[in-house]
Design a protein around this nucleic acid. Structure first.
Length: 561
RNA sequence: GCGCCUGUAGCUCAGCUGGAUAGAGCAUCUGCCUUCUAAGCAGGUUGUCGGGAGUUCGAAUCUCUCCAGGCGCGCCA
């Protein structure tokens, strides 16, 4: 438990004690203690911690909140809590001012835990899988995938920091109709490149990248597939293209700072018979019926708007069937919690997938789907429709090249998944130097610079500050930094619990700002050895905490800028 | 038509398990480099929190309704 949580815990306990005593003496009458909070007030003048306990109790106790507060304070034992003073404020808040000493403990704590500082254990080693991006391997990664990549990767890092055992997974849609279309498109491009006048399939993939792929096939194998039988030809072309596409996707994601633990093939589920087996399992449990020659899953039993086809009239299982099998497979691998990051356009899929899990006897709540809203790409002031089929899109590769990995990742992580984001590439390019990520990185570089100079001046960086030295950190700027560092584990806990990595982006930004303020008002490398040691220990800690936050965002922490 | 998401400063967005005076970046204006990185700091300007009604001691936050935008409602994925 973090220092901060420790203190809060104790005060909570003492508040409960005070309530009990007040009830015993008959000063307060209530049946049940309602939900109340003990939190840091927004306004500094309202103290370090505040509780609304007296206000939420007003109804039951039939007393004015301020009077209740008075009684509570009278009975509150503040020994050993760091509480320096308690006062009643506003409509009935109880504000506590803490003895500043508690904050000093944060520095030794950070120095001890180093890159682990901030880690909490709300996950308790639970196995959780985060599946994200899972883009079709028929084309290149686009802006929506970029958002998913940034979000999913940061969420995974965040959960790892919160005590979960995390697995990052990419589901490869290497089966089904789209692959057939892909094959037809490849075939047409192949023949066209070799001078044959063949039409391009209407539903084909128009991307330029397909032509490049086909050219490489020709470089390697020439026209040997022209005379081949249709099926075999398509099979060769697809196999070559898929391998190349997936390798490319992997490479691009790695450039974006995302490394997966597992790449899971949809085709493998068909090959192993797992899809069929899953359908049979559902059938056995009575959730499948036949209508108009197709097999349907009774998803309406689970709140879906209508039932869904799992096996087509032609005998081919649908994508949905494979996806059910895939999710069943996930849970069979021992994940207690499975998180999917999907685009909002897949939202209709959520209810039936959860329903399918329930039908299979899996707790649907252990599957969590995070929907992220669309990325609207703006160019020349107009919305550009992105589509793989039309071949018109800005790729993740373009984004990394033109905007930069750090700026791009931060742009996405900063935002709540629920908000539709507008991405104006021209603006992003011209403003990439204004991206707030540099503000954070600059703080880190400055911290490193101070430490470099301290070293040059022959100062010890392995400081172990004494309490007397730490007590010299009395300025508002120093206290704000200490406070923010003490908050970090709590921020991790909340962000992980809510699966909201964008909170960490906000934290890093606020923290960097506090540091810049400090930097401009105090010098670290002063002549006074005592103060210098104290401040050095402070900035060593600040750098550590900042680096820990940045690491979760998947952004680099440069030593120089 | 039904379902989900969104509407907060000129722009891009935080804040939304209700809390005391609604925030940040960009833009704009004024100061600050003989001292550890000015990619920085300090300060000024900027709001019918889409409209309305309700619940509450208290609403940007919860409920209802209306308006506007996005997405979905395939034997596509």
């Amino acid at each position: 438990m973090s220092l901060y949580e420790n203190i809060k815990q104790k005060i909570y306990f003492r508040l409960e004690e005070a309530l009990k005593k007040a009830k015993e003496t008959g000063e307060l009458d209530f049946k049940e203690v309602p939900e109340y909070v003990l939190e840091e007030p927004r306004e500094r003048q309202h103290g370090d911690l505040a509780t609304n306990l007296a206000m939420v109790l007003a109804k039951q106790a039939k007393k004015a909140p301020r009077d209740i507060a008075k009684v509570l304070i009278a009975h509150l034992n503040t020994d050993d809590t760091w509480i320096a003073s308690s006062e009643i404020a506003g409509p009935g808040f109880i504000n506590f001012r803490l003895n500043p000493g508690w904050l000093l403990e944060v520095i030794p704590e950070v120095m001890k835990q180093k890159e682990r500082y901030g880690a909490v254990n709300i996950g308790q080693g639970e196995k959780v899988q985060v599946e994200f991006v899972s883009a079709n391997p028929t084309g290149l990664l686009h802006m929506g995938n970029a958002r998913g990549a940034a979000l999913g990767d940061s969420l995974a890092s965040l959960l790892a920091m919160a005590g979960y055992e995390v697995c990052r997974e990419f589901y490869i849609n290497d089966a089904g109709n789209q692959i057939y279309n892909f094959a037809l498109s490849l075939e047409a491009r192949y023949l066209q490149q070799l001078g044959y006048d063949v039409p391009f399939p209407e539903a084909g993939y128009h991307g330029e990248d397909l032509i490049a792929t086909v050219k490489r096939i020709i470089d390697r194998d020439g026209d040997k597939y022209v005379s081949m039988e249709e099926d075999a030809r398509r099979d060769y072309l697809v196999r070559f293209a898929l391998e190349e596409k997936i390798a490319g996707i992997k490479e691009t994601l790695e450039k974006f700072g995302v490394v997966y633990d597992v790449w899971f093939s949809e085709q493998s589920l068909h090959d192993s018979g797992y899809v069929q087996d899953t359908i049979k399992e559902l059938e056995k449990k009575g959730y499948i019926y036949e209508k108009e020659g197709a097999l349907w899953f009774k998803s309406t039993l689970f709140g879906d708007e209508k039932d869904e086809v799992v096996v087509r009239k032609n005998g081919v299982p649908t994508y949905f069937a494979a996806d059910i099998a895939y999710h069943r497979h996930k849970f069979s691998r021992g994940f207690q919690r499975v998180i999917n990051i999907w685009g909002a356009d897949h939202h209709g899929h959520v209810a039936r997938m959860k329903g399918a899990m329930q039908a299979l006897g899996i707790n649907p709540d252990s599957l969590q789907v995070i929907l992220m809203q669309m990325v609207r790409l703006i160019q020349n002031g107009e919305v550009v429709r992105m589509s793989k089929r039309s071949g018109q899109y800005i790729t993740l590769e373009d984004l990394i090249d033109e905007v930069g990995k750090d700026a791009a990742r931060f742009f996405f992580i900063q935002r709540d998944p629920d908000s539709t984001v507008e991405f104006d590439l021209d603006l992003a390019k011209s403003q990439s130097a204004d991206n707030p990520v540099y503000y954070i990185q600059y703080a880190h570089a400055r911290l490193c610079s101070i430490m470099r100079q301290a070293k040059e001046m022959g100062y010890e960086l392995n400081v172990e500050p004494s309490l007397e030295q730490l007590r010299l950190l009395t300025s508002q700027e120093e206290r704000d930094l200490l406070k923010k560092m003490a908050d970090f584990p709590g921020e991790i806990a909340v962000a992980a619990k809510m699966a909201e990595p964008h909170r960490i982006a906000r934290y890093a930004l606020d923290f960097a700002s506090l540091f810049h303020t400090f930097y401009n008002s105090h010098r670290v490398l002063v002549d006074d050895e005592q103060l210098r040691t104290a401040r050095l220990s402070l900035i060593i800690s600040v750098k550590q905490v900042l680096a820990n936050a940045i690491r979760i965002l998947g952004v680099s922490a440069p030593e120089k800028m």
